[in-house]
């Protein structure tokens, strides 16, 4: 007979809906790690958690919002950013964080991403890039690398298309803070998310993650541990590198770091100032 021992509460548990656990994620998945990063970033900053709204779209990463013990909205596929823009402008006091996957943000929601970057609305987008649509079983998406196998790009041909580089996309669309890390760079990525939250403008943080269940299996990339170990091996930290040089090649080199951190008038601030002026 085993003796029951008191279990120490996880330090981030105060932000998390424990009643929603266990997590839905597969073992070896990166999304849980990223959820932890977001919680720690909020904790490190000491911001009023009741003013935080977490918005997500559909997919594995999209399920993140529901685990946070604050105002959350689990929207339709691809629309998290558009929805978040409405929340932010209607109530600029809220700290809006979008957490969603690469398929959600860069394929069906790609138009919303580039236009939100262009508008420079104050919000933090954390995009978990696991190179495929996981929730639907592993189909190719906008970040699936050329010739990789997925359920809809099966062997022997593989993916005929080419992938987006999300850092380049966000930077050239006008985001004022752009970073990329992998799921193993927890401390650095958390710091970037903190900077993103503090930044008055649109922040885009890509977290390259692993989907061992679908993408990993179909491309023989190993299990979750092997994939995360690989991410650490090929990561090439180049803070301050011009974003157009931030290459991502899963096999050989994933350039990580903070690539954009510029000042540009933020949408809700411009609006507030304009209204103030008009009222005299």
């Amino acid at each position: 007979m085993t003796e029951s021992v008191p279990v120490l509460k996880h330090p981030m548990a105060k932000y998390i809906r424990e009643d929603r656990q266990p997590w839905i994620y597969c073992s070896g998945c990166s999304v849980g790690i990223v959820t932890g990063m977001v919680a720690r970033a909020i904790d490190n900053l000491g911001i009023d958690f009741s003013k935080v709204v977490v918005v997500s779209g559909i997919g594995c990463t999209g399920r993140t919002s529901g685990y946070f013990k604050t105002g959350t909205y689990y929207t339709t596929h691809g629309r998290a950013i558009a929805f978040a823009e409405g929340v932010k402008i209607a109530n600029p006091e809220l700290e809006v964080i979008v957490v969603s996957g690469d398929g959600d943000i860069a394929a069906i929601g790609g138009n919303h991403l580039i236009h939100a970057c262009r508008r420079n609305i104050d919000m933090t987008i954390v995009c978990v890039n696991n190179f495929n649509y996981g929730m639907t079983g592993g189909q190719f998406g906008p970040t699936t690398e050329h010739l990789r196998y997925t359920q809809t790009s099966p062997p022997p041909i593989g993916n005929v298309e080419h992938s987006f580089n999300l850092v380049k996309l966000a930077a050239s669309s006008g985001a004022t803070f752009v970073a990329r890390w992998t799921a193993v760079h927890v401390r650095r990525a958390t710091k970037s998310i903190e900077k993103g939250i503090e930044k008055k403008g649109l922040s885009f943080i890509e977290i390259v993650g692993a989907c061992p269940t679908a993408y990993g299996r179909m491309n023989r990339l190993g299990d979750g541990v092997a994939m995360h170990r690989h991410l650490l091996e090929v990561a090439d930290i180049q803070n301050g590198l011009p974003p157009h040089e931030a290459e991502l090649d899963y096999e050989t080199r994933i350039v990580c770091g903070e690539f954009v951190d510029v000042e540009k008038p933020e949408y809700t601030a411009v609006l507030r100032e304009a209204y103030k002026k008009l009222r005299g």
Partner: peptide, 28 residues
């Protein structure tokens, strides 16, 4: 500006209604 109304010309109608739903969720 006179009536303090948030207005946004969106990238498409999908975003228009999604933003409106977001703003409504926030209380507007």
């Amino acid at each position: 500006h006179e009536f303090r109304i948030g207005t946004l010309q969106t990238e498409d109608e999908i975003a228009a209604l999604c933003m409106a739903i977001g703003a409504s969720y926030a209380g507007a």
